[in-house]
C-alpha cells in the first residue's frame, strides 16, 4: 500500500464536497464510528449519525442477501430539501454525502465512485495504531482510563 499522509482522508472528503457542492461528507466504519468529516457538521450529531447509518446499511445488506445479492453498494435517501447518498468505499467503511440539490445526484454519485479507491488507500488502522503507540503508553492509557471509569461511573 502506498504511503499517504494521515490528514489526506479529510482532504479527499473536502474536495469531494466542493466538487459536488454538497453540504456534508462523513466517512464512517461499519461499526458506526465517524472517521473523518468535511463540510458543515454544525447541524447534526455526527456520532449518532454514524451509528444510525451503519445500522441502516447493515440492515440493507441483509435485505440484499435475501434477494440473492451480496450487498447493495449504494443507498439514497431522498428528502424534501436534503438528501443522503451512502456508498461503500471498502468492506469496512462507508462514505456519506449530504446534499441539498437533488439535480446533483449524478455528480454526487460520480464523485463518490471516483474517490472510493483513494479513500480506501488513505485508511490504515495498523498505521494509526503505530502512530498512536509513538505518543501513548498502553500502561498509562489503561491506568488513566480506569481512573476515568471509576470516577464517572461511581455508584450512587
Amino acid at each position: 500500500m502506498r504511503e499517504i499522509p494521515a490528514d489526506t482522508t479529510r482532504e479527499i472528503l473536502r474536495n469531494l464536497i466542493a466538487a459536488c457542492e454538497a453540504k456534508t461528507g462523513l466517512l464512517i466504519t461499519k461499526e458506526g464510528t465517524s472517521i473523518a468529516e468535511a463540510g458543515d457538521t454544525s447541524y447534526l450529531s455526527t456520532t449518532a449519525m454514524a451509528a444510525l447509518v451503519a445500522g441502516m446499511f447493515s440492515a440493507t445488506r441483509e435485505v440484499a442477501r435475501m434477494v440473492g445479492e451480496r450487498q447493495f453498494s449504494i443507498l439514497l435517501q431522498q428528502g424534501e430539501s436534503r438528501h443522503i447518498h451512502i456508498s461503500l468505499t471498502t468492506d469496512t467503511t462507508m462514505l456519506v454525502v449530504i446534499f441539498e440539490d437533488i439535480q446533483r445526484i449524478g455528480k454526487v454519485r460520480h464523485e463518490a465512485r471516483k474517490v472510493a479507491e483513494r479513500l480506501a488507500d488513505s485508511l490504515s488502522s495498523s498505521r494509526d495504531s503505530a502512530l498512536v503507540r509513538s505518543e501513548l503508553s498502553v500502561t498509562d492509557f489503561r491506568q488513566g482510563a480506569v481512573r476515568l471509569i471509576n470516577d464517572i461511573f461511581r455508584p450512587d
Partner: peptide, 8 residues
C-alpha cells in the same frame, strides 16, 4: 477491537 484514530 476499538477504533483508534491518530488523526482525530
Amino acid at each position: 477491537m476499538p477504533h483508534i484514530s491518530f488523526h482525530n
